[in-house]
Amino acid sequence: MSEITREDIKKVADLAQIAVTDVESDALRKDIEPVLGYFDTLSAIKTDGIEGEGHITRMTNVMRRDRVQEMSDDERIMMMDAVPVSDGDRIVVKGVL
């Protein structure tokens, strides 16, 4: 496996949406490199013609109608209480666009 650089870590941290400092990035690189090397041992296993398994129970999807469901005022209040920044019944976020 090729070497992991500080930039690689920063790029992946960006995808994972985690802010990392240079110091953190170097520590992460040191920790992660041997683990990725260990993961790479999988490449030696023959899997030609083998189907991948995403779920062990092989169930079919459970479907439901896409419709608005009412929730109790109580539950609604508790859910809104958990929101870090709100304005009445609305969740405040930074502009998306």
């Binding site: 993961f39 790479d40 999988l42 490449s43 296993i45 899997t47 083998i50 189907e51 991948g52 398994e53 995403g54 062990i56």
Partner: peptide
């Protein structure tokens, strides 16, 4: 492909 999908295939072998 090298990691996630490969691991899913090995998972089949383990099962």
């Amino acid at each position: 492909d090298a990691f996630y999908k490969k691991a899913q295939k090995v998972r089949t072998l383990i099962r």
